[in-house]
Each structure stands twice: as structure tokens, then as C-alpha cells.
Design a protein around this nucleic acid. Sequence first.
DNA 1: TTGTAAGCGTTATCAA
DNA 2: TTGATAACGCTTACAA
Lengths: 338, 338
Amino acid sequence: MASIYDVAAAAGVSITTVSHVYSGNRHVAADTVARVMEAAKDLDYSPRLSARALATGRSMILGVCFPAESSLLHRNPYFPALLEGLSAAAGKQGYGFLLIPNALGEDGVSQGELLGQLDGVIIADPAEDDVRLAAFLERDLPVITVGRWMSRQDIPWVDNDHSKALENLFIHLDEQGYERPLLLNKRPTISYESDVEQAFQRETAARGLPGRTVWCEDFFSQKTYDVAREILTAGDRPDVIIASTDSQALSVLQAASDLGIDIPGELGVVGEGETVLAASSIPPLTSIRVFPDKLGDLAVGLMLDLLNGGGGERSKLVPVELVVRASTERRSGMEASP
Amino acid sequence: MASIYDVAAAAGVSITTVSHVYSGNRHVAADTVARVMEAAKDLDYSPRLSARALATGRSMILGVCFPAESSLLHRNPYFPALLEGLSAAAGKQGYGFLLIPNALGEDGVSQGELLGQLDGVIIADPAEDDVRLAAFLERDLPVITVGRWMSRQDIPWVDNDHSKALENLFIHLDEQGYERPLLLNKRPTISYESDVEQAFQRETAARGLPGRTVWCEDFFSQKTYDVAREILTAGDRPDVIIASTDSQALSVLQAASDLGIDIPGELGVVGEGETVLAASSIPPLTSIRVFPDKLGDLAVGLMLDLLNGGGGERSKLVPVELVVRASTERRSGMEASP
DNA sequence: TTGTAAGCGTTATCAA
DNA sequence: TTGATAACGCTTACAA
């Protein structure tokens, strides 16, 4: 492995010059640059990042950290999509992403070891009590969250504008004549869930409607189906169910189908996440589209601001998009007008 | 930030001793260890990994690399699950995982920079022509693949035993009396797809059945549905369709349902991947379960072997499991016996 | 059982 | 426009 010394010798310059050719930190004469680059290519040289990190005090590595809860990373496509967004954005700036294992914190060993390496950490959907997060703050690692950390509002974040999403959704539901909404939500442990709840209460209150929420702990199993079935067979049946994830909404569709309930005539169904599932379900699902790649991009931007002196470290809200499909469209635009 | 010098001074020992307390590379007297650890805790010290990396020539960071094709990472839950397996296994050994952005290679900038940092790279489902892979081998970075690299069989790999999976599947299909199988597969660009094709041909040939394969480029869109519909309405209708992913299989289920074809009576359907979808579809889907966490574990093990002198760098095949559900179960075990 | 001192490959501060 | 040289914080012979 060639070092900066080898390149300097081959190019007939000092290591300082080679260093500056690579860092761009000061001007180097064009022909000198050419000579250095050629020597570097000949020797197959590239700067050792660990040496650079030691000299600068910056590793150029960011950590990323997903909810520990039941390996959500691979059950909800939102997270891998976010990870890609983060990784792409960071890559463009020369930063890399280290995935922080969920086990961190239980396993005392790797904890300090790995964290010492990081320039900062991005946390997706932080739970209040996650032991890892406490560790980051103690070492005062720069932290950005995707979704807000409810107990520490001072930490810069990016987030989806769920509030606006529900505002728009209710306008749509008004148009479609739905009047007995029900929110199928998870008991709030992250900001998303409490945002949705609050916005739901706000919108229903504004319309004089009851803001009925059913809490449903389990996102992905048979349980959601059972809960949905119970809701649909009980006395006071809602005419539209808003589910906090697309997969929950699919369970509702299924339960309704099994009970012979017509969708969207007797029951509207709305999901959130706009996964592949939503477009291809029967009937296609009205859903709220989020943009994890955009979130990733902004989160990295915020992090870099923080690392580079922290000028504009303002948090950012990302617009979402209501995608209307058959599951709530009982009056087409054509018929509605006159 | 405290350094090894601060700790040594506070504990009244040399930096060598502190170093050895942390590395475990030589014995240190128990009370000395205690003194050092206390000083370290007081000073909130943890070794700077970049310094360690510079001194040892090892970064303790592995790269991981997923198929570039249309961001498969977030469309197929297999990949995030694998990533978690890798990350957990690596974490236990003090290694971290850097996600290599898909853009790498197009963007010349970050290429050398990031790669210089890595001790090795694990590649999931390598495509033959991926430019990134060429780059790794040129720099002779140690490489392990998950799924085999078809053009370079010399590279150590871990893989699912798809061949055995199809063997078992066909035994099951025999029992259920299926006789006109059709394979819905993707044109082979990775070893998985060609393994499945080969095993399918082998099993059908052994039974004197036609080995009919339909190639279907698009895994997740409407297209699969259309292809399935075409297959089911054409003259020579299969009595069982084996799909190369669960989501493909779901499209088949849907098409069959729309056409009023009874499952599993008139048509059996089999998926692969054993995602959450399989268990909750209507009817529940017979599928081949893979164990990405296990693969991740073994891949990391192989990588460490390679890094530590490369003793037992033998590749490994991981058993998979046939999960029989209603979509192929037309004769229950009860009825079948007499 | 412990310590001294020479690297590891960069960047950064001076100075020219 | 370029160079010497001292950090950066660790590991690891070699010595004691």
C-alpha cells in the first residue's frame, strides 16, 4: 500500500503538496497537480482515512440507528428507504454510514468502541427510553432525529408533516361524505403516533365529529385483523377507518371483505406510508405518501451544518402527499360537481 | 476528549499499560487494571478507533453492498433482514458496517476515499456486471458474497440451499397431486434465479413433467399480475405456479381470485422468502422460508476467518424450510392416508 | 509485571 | 507556490 511519502517521492514534491492536492486546502500549480496525480495513479495510491481522521479529529463516519422494537427495520419499508436516502446523501459529501446494531447498549463491549469513531448520529423515530440515545448525548455526539424526540425538543430534527396530511385527508373525507371516522393507531411511543392522534382530534373536533381512536399494539400480525373485525361487527360502526400504516389498512380491507362490507360505499379505508402494497391491494388503497429519501437528504444536510459550525441548524418539516385511490372514492369528481 | 496519556498519568502507569488493559494483548496485574479502569471512567475515556486503525492497519469496518437495481433494498424485506443479521454479528466482534451507497462507481469522488477505510466487503446477491465489485477486487479487498458470484466461483460465499428447497417442494407437490408446474422466475442475473431454474428443471425432468418457465422481469408491479392473468387464461393452464418471490405469488393469487379460479383446488401457488405477506394473504401462502439472519452471521464469520489468516474460508450453504399453508394444501394429512 | 520509544499516514503550523 | 516538521492517539517491538 503506497503512502503519501511514496507519491511525494515519485512526483518529486513534498508530502505537504501531495496532501494539498488531495484536500484542496490550498492552491497547487496545475502542472504539479498533474505530476502528483500521475504518480498517485501509478502507485495506486489513495489517502488512508484513518490517518486523516487521526490528524483532523474527524472520522467522516456517521452513525444511524433504527427503532430497536422487534426489528422494525425489515418489517416496515419506510426504514430501508430512509437508510438509502441517508446513505446516498452522505456519500455525496464524502461521509459514510455505520449502522448501529440494535444490541448496542445491552452489550457493553462494543458500545464505547464504536461510538468513539462517529462524527454524529442520526436516529430514526427515537423512542423516549432508548438506552442508546442516552449514550450518544452523554458523549455529546451531534445528534439529528428523523421524527422528533418528544422529551427533548431541543434536538434538531426532520419530520413528515403529518398534521398537514390529516388536514388534507379530512378535506377529502368531507368531499366523500364520510362522517364517522375512526383512527386505528399505535399507542404513542414515537412522535409520529402522537402527531397523528393530535391532528385527528383537532380535525374531528373542528367538524363536531367524535374523535374515536382504537389503539392497536401490533402492526403486522393477525391481531390487527382481529381488532378490525371487532370494530366492524360492533354496534357503532365507523364509516371510514384511518390506519397508521398501510399494512394495518390492508388488514382492515381484508376484514371488511370477509364480512361482506362494501368498500368504499359502506366503509372507507386510508393507510399511511404509500408502500407498494397500497397501489396493488384490492381495492387500491388511499394512502398518505411520505418521502423517506427526502428526509434522509435533509437529515444529512442538518448534520453537516451542525458539524461545520452549526449555523443554520433549524429543523425541517417535509410535506407529504395524499394519494386518493378507490378505497375512499365513492363519489367520482365527475358526478360531484352539479 | 481524554487520550491514553491522560489516563496513564491519572493512573500512574505508562501508556503501554493502558493500551494493554484495553487490548488484552498482554497480562496486566489485577490492581493495575482496576486503577486504569477507574481513571478511564473518571476521564470518560475510550480509545480513538482512528488512532488504533492507523497503528494496526485495520479499521474494524466492513462494507456492505446491496443490488443497485431499482433500490431493491427497500422493496424486498430479505435485504434489510440480512443487513440486520450482518450488523448484529459484526457488532459482537467489534466490527461495524458501512453501507456502500449504490451511487458508488458513477460518482468517482467518494469511491477511493471510502473504500480505503474498509477491512473487507460483503456483497449481497452480486450481479455479474456491477462496477463496484470490480473496484473491490482491484484493490484486493477481502470479499464475501451472500449468494454466489457466478462468474467468479473462487470467491467465498454463503448461500441459501435453493436446490434442496425445490427438492422438498416437489415432494410436497407430489403428495398433493400437482402435475403441471410452472415456474415464474426472473431472468437470471444473480445466482438465486439460475439456481431455482436449474433445480426446477431437474425436478420436473426426474418426474417426466414439462419444465415450463415464464420469465417475468418485473417483481413488484402490475406487470406480474398481467403475466399471471395471461398464464391462467391461456390454453395449457398449469395446476401449480411456483413464484420466485412472495410478492409475485401474491399477484398470482390475486389474478386467480379475479378469474374465479379455486385455490388450492384448481391451482396451487408457492412463494419464496416467507415474508409477513405470506402468512396473512388469502389464502395463506405456501412459501420457502429463508434465514437472512443466519446468512449474515455466517458471512461475517467467513469474513473474519479471511481477515485472520484465512484458515477455514470454506463457503457455506444454509438450509431453508418449506412452510406449507393453504395455497397448496388440497389434501389434508388426515384424508390422505388410507 | 511494566516502561521506552519508534512507528502508522495524514493534516496543520510555520516559514520560505 | 511550496517545504520542514510537529502533532494526532494509538500499538508494538525491545528492554528492564
